[in-house]
């Protein structure tokens, strides 16, 4: 009897959850479907069954050189993330393992830099980039993204490092490990999962950053965000191709995101929700 009720409850909840999930996912799904249609099909009214052509993907590559912005996105996202990690790991390390009275203040201050609205510094940054010849360069944008995401990277690493119990470090000291051995044999292996999650989340954030990447590039260093934004001006109907480009722009990061959903919560709430 009780078991019956539970099963019925589960079926109801399942149906409701799937309906909600499919509605939310629908725009993405429909983009994927449209990308497999021909252009006339794409504007011929609602249909979930495409003719299954891959022509659009080929066209996007041959006509608009999709590969170039894609590579820019990869270089920018990965490059800025690694750069941020190199700068942030020692800091987060020091704050987690030799905290002082001011550690908390420094962390809060770092967080506060993240609150600065991008538009507020658009003018000086734009002028500086122009004067230093950094506009539309990969290097300029990489530095930019590194700085933008540095506070989040420090914070995420800090929350992970802080969870490494102090007693383990003391045990290592009792066992005769010097500082270097402590780092190599004990701390690094324990810190790797946290560093990996930080890396993943930060790549996602950098990949999707859509203010500086659009404003500070034109063609050479333009990543996918700018590439897609350039489609906004209506130059005739080319939805199937647009869908193909969109699908390619979001697919890699979508898959990466699925793997990192657990860490996402922690990272984006600065450890406030686990």
């Amino acid at each position: 009897m009780a078991r019956n009720v539970t099963t019925r409850h589960k079926v109801t909840a399942t149906v409701a959850a799937w309906v909600v999930a499919l509605i939310i996912f629908f725009p993405i799904l429909y983009t994927l479907i449209t990308s497999l249609k021909t252009e006339p099909e794409a504007i011929a009214g609602f249909s979930l069954i495409p003719s299954g052509t891959f022509e659009n993907y080929v066209t996007v590559q041959t006509q608009r050189d999709y590969f170039k912005p894609f590579m820019n996105s990869v270089v920018l996202a990965v490059g800025s993330t690694i750069l941020a990690l190199i700068i942030a790991i020692p800091s987060a390390w020091a704050m987690a393992f030799s905290p002082t009275k001011r550690t908390k203040d420094i962390l809060m201050w770092m967080l506060s830099t993240k609150m600065m609205p991008a538009v507020a510094v658009l003018v000086p940054i734009y002028l500086m980039f122009r004067d230093f010849g950094l506009l539309d360069t990969r290097i300029g944008l990489t530095v930019m993204l590194t700085l933008i995401n540095l506070p989040i990277v420090v914070w995420m690493l800090y929350t992970y490092f802080r969870e490494i119990p102090g007693e383990i470090l003391e045990a290592a000291r009792m066992d005769g490990a010097g500082l270097w051995q402590e780092i190599v044999y004990v701390l690094t292996p324990m810190a790797v999962p946290g560093i990996a999650s930080t890396l993943l989340l930060n790549i996602i954030l950098a990949w999707n950053e859509a203010f500086w990447t659009i404003r500070l590039t034109t063609t050479n260093a333009a990543p996918l965000t700018a590439f897609i934004a350039s489609f906004s001006s209506p130059q005739g109907l080319f939805w199937a191709k647009l869908s193909a480009a969109s699908t390619m722009a979001i697919a890699p990061i979508l898959i990466l995101g699925w793997f990192s959903q657990k860490q996402l919560v922690r990272g984006l709430t600065f450890g406030a929700v686990k």
């Binding site: 799937w18 909600v20 999930a21 993405i28 429909y30 990949w207 659009i214 969109s246 979001i250």
Partner: peptide, 27 residues
């Protein structure tokens, strides 16, 4: 709630977050 295919549902629901803003807007 206990539901069938919870993992997949979760993935479907969180997906829009990973869509870059220009793509979301154009879609």
């Amino acid at each position: 709630q206990p539901i069938f295919g919870q993992g997949v549902v979760r993935i479907l629901v969180i997906s829009p977050f990973f869509v870059m803003p220009p793509v979301a807007a154009l879609i």
